[in-house]
Design a protein around this nucleic acid. Structure first.
Lengths: 194, 194
DNA sequence: ATCGAAGTTAGATCAATATCGAATTAGATG
DNA sequence: CATCTAATTCGATATTGATCTAACTTCGAT
């Protein structure tokens, strides 16, 4: 489902999600009708019906034919199939993909001030996002002595000891013989930014 | 399509016709999620998401499971099938039937003041409605001399001659040898009221 | 038992829009 | 041409509803 498909679906649903317009379609599904007839059926004034017919026409749900002064509207059944095509679980699922990691970005926006970590998130999920970001401050393919680890973390937050332990505990980094290095995630979906 | 079906369809469409809610469904179609995650994905505040989830839950489009403080929402794919079932040309066509002859009633309401015909409609379609009503003032299974026809019509409008000719011309009544009687319509859908 | 975090509820605000009356356009008719 | 009718357009109004902040509830952890 492309992004335009998604926008189109919303437009269709907005136009259909109105009792008057559904009734209009219902009437026109039986037989074509003029604005005045529709207005009387629906107990609405002609300008209101005209407005609704315009919205329906914009999406191809009805067409208009003019006989003298009378505008006769006709239902276009196949336009509905577009909606039914898009309104399926699989299609909706594709809709979400365009979004991406907005949540992670939000967490970082909330807890970072520039490169400064305002505080350590209490919730585990958010803490993991921040730790991932912190781990990204370290390069791959090399080791760091503890002093350098403390210094790098210290640029972002005073409590480097806690954060260092968290990095190890949550397997963003590993330690052996007093040196530290980054380790890769197995399957998690987190990604860094900047 | 019953009337409740129709109301249900409108409710569904109203709930679905919102970009945020469609996105929520899109995300949940891929994996279940908590309120906060959804809020971050969509860049909305938790109360807003909570509101949307409530609307979706009312229609069975999502279900909720509570783990401690975290409410985890899950997409219910089969709820969508209801919409697809109702959103078909044939179903919409059935929707109009519940309405009936509102238009005719409207015309009569406009042109009648009690039993008094305020004026003779200029538009043919409306004139036919009024003539049908006028014809209903005559009984079946008997004949009327012209004088009585004039008198009966005269109760409703001064110009009884024009109306009498219209009744004949539009085949609501017939005349032979100076007497008049009602004749039945072939297939027209008009019905009278009181 | 206290505190913090996730969620919901309540209330307020603001934008979108359904509806209508008035004015306008365009066709038909005498 | 003058008039009448159907339809549309325009402007105003009123309602609906999406979103937010603030307050409250509930649960878990310290």
């Amino acid at each position: 489902m492309t992004n335009e498909d998604s926008q189109l679906l919303v437009q269709f649903l907005k136009v259909l999600a109105d009792e008057s317009r559904l009734k209009i379609l219902g009437i026109l599904a039986n037989q074509e009708a003029s604005v005045e007839e529709l207005a009387a059926y629906l107990q609405l004034k002609p300008p209101t019906v005209s407005h609704h017919l315009n919205r329906l026409r914009e999406l191809g749900l009805v067409t208009m034919r003019q006989d003298g002064n009378v505008h006769t509207y006709r239902f276009q059944a196949d336009a509905l199939s577009q909606v039914n095509r898009l309104l399926k679980p699989e299609k909706l699922a594709q809709l979400a993909d365009v979004e991406g990691d907005a949540w992670q970005r939000k967490v970082l926006r909330d807890f970072l001030n520039g490169v400064e970590l305002k505080e350590i998130p209490a919730s585990r999920k958010k803490r993991l996002v921040v730790l991932q970001w912190l781990a990204d401050q370290f390069e791959w393919d090399r080791t760091y002595p503890e002093s350098e680890v403390n210094e790098i973390i210290g640029r972002h937050h005073p409590d480097f000891a806690t954060l260092r332990r968290e990095l190890i505990g949550n397997r963003f980094m590993a330690r052996e013989n007093g040196v530290y290095w980054r380790i890769s995630e197995k399957s998690s979906s987190e990604k860094s930014n900047t």
